[in-house]
Computed example of a mutant assay.
Amino acid sequence: MKGLRIIIFVDLSDPNSQLHLRDPGVSGSLSTFFITSPKFTDTIFHFSQPAAASVVLGVNQDAYSEVNLDYIKTHDIRLARRGAGGGAVYVDPGNLTYAFIDNDDGRNYLNFKKYATPAIHVLHKLGVDAEMTGRNDLTVDGKKFSGMSSLKIGNRFSCGGTLMIDVDLDQAAKALTPPKTKLASKGIKSVHSRVTNIRQYFLPQYRQITFAEIRRLLLEEVFQTTDLATIPTYTMSEADWQQVELIAQNKFTDPDFIMGTKRDDDFFHGNHFDGLGTVEISFSVDDGIVTHARIFGDFNQANGHLKVIEDKLIGTPFKKDNLEEAFRTTNLSANIGPISAAEMADLMLNPHFQEVN
């Protein structure tokens, strides 16, 4: 892969790894392990295929507005939350997930196109007219088949995405319930009309290609070799997996982390901002004063201190100038992303942004 120095491929295909990966909370802890473990300091590439259906939330999202909780419970679909930003995704055995772990060189963090390039090149070879659109989506024929997200801890970060190959689209559409502003920003009315599987776009000679063959093509593209035996490969030890399990137990399998607290505010407003994503705010107002506020969204800033913003709003008069002043003192760029105090104030004041769910 030109411009990216890949050192290690972490092979997760062994039986022990597959056993651990059955829990989406554990698989979601892998990035944190690879980023924080002193054992790994070079670039890492890995991919996995979910053993069962699950919905994975972005770190800043509201589970109660993004997911049909009754449906996923009835259909035994697991719910998980990753440490990275981005939006909710439905994954099942028809999905291939890939990720890079890299060191921030000042140019590569949140450079989604760079890390999507190997997948795009492979898909072009298979006949898919894939392209990157928006911040972090891969699309074909105007439909999304991959979403990407990133998590940064210290000077290392993960960047990866999903490839929808044979996903159950009907189940995905019923499991996900994104707010209307997100769908409107894409110019569509439902999840089903927005996403697609890519197998139907493969050239006839590749229409029956297996997941193993796709993984091989990705490895050849990433490492620029057809001899897979020459690729530096690492297999997870049981001691490694115990560390991953500990990370999961401390955070990613915690029901409070996954679900969050159910909203109980007077208002819930949301809007999609180009180059940032969807930002939502749940808030209450009493006698012209903001008494409570919580911020959600699919923006990719995973390490922002949203509580700093929420706490600053409490006690602020519900007026344009006062709200803007409060937002100006909360470092919005670091905590949410490229959004102005005026835009955040308008998000709260404008009834047009009221969400139905």
Rank of each mutant, 00 (worst) to 15 (best):
M1H: 07
K2T: 10
R5N: 13
I6W: 04
I6S: 05
I7P: 00
I8C: 12
L12W: 04
D14N: 14
S17K: 03
Q18E: 13
L21V: 10
R22Y: 10
D23V: 06
G25P: 02
G25A: 10
S29E: 10
S29V: 05
L30D: 03
K39M: 11
F45N: 01
H46T: 05
V55T: 03
Q61K: 09
Y64I: 06
D70R: 10
T74N: 13
H75T: 11
D76W: 06
L79N: 03
A80H: 06
G85N: 02
G87R: 04
V89F: 04
G94A: 09
L96S: 01
N103C: 12
N103D: 11
R107G: 13
N108I: 09
Y109W: 13
N111I: 08
K113L: 10
A116V: 01
K125H: 14
L126E: 03
R135Y: 08
R135I: 14
K144M: 03
G147I: 02
I153E: 04
C159A: 12
T162W: 04
L163N: 05
M164L: 15
D170Y: 12
Q171G: 06
K174Q: 12
P178Q: 07
K180H: 13
T181C: 13
K182F: 15
A184P: 04
K186D: 00
K189S: 15
H192T: 08
S193M: 07
N197F: 09
I198L: 06
Q205M: 12
Q208S: 15
F211T: 13
R216Q: 15
F223K: 05
Q224E: 15
L228P: 00
T230V: 14
T230I: 13
T235D: 11
M236E: 04
W241F: 11
W241T: 11
Q242I: 09
Q243F: 01
V244N: 01
E245C: 11
I247F: 04
F252S: 04
T253K: 12
G260H: 12
D264P: 01
D266T: 11
G270E: 05
N271C: 11
F273D: 01
F273P: 02
D274K: 15
G275W: 08
L276W: 03
I281M: 05
S282T: 04
S284D: 09
D286P: 00
I289F: 08
H292M: 08
F296D: 03
F296M: 07
F299P: 00
G304D: 07
G304C: 10
H305E: 14
I309W: 00
E310Q: 14
I314N: 01
I314K: 12
T316H: 06
L323C: 05
E324I: 15
E325L: 14
R328A: 13
A334I: 00
N335F: 06
D346A: 11
P351F: 14
P351S: 12
H352Q: 14
E355A: 13
E355R: 07
E355T: 10
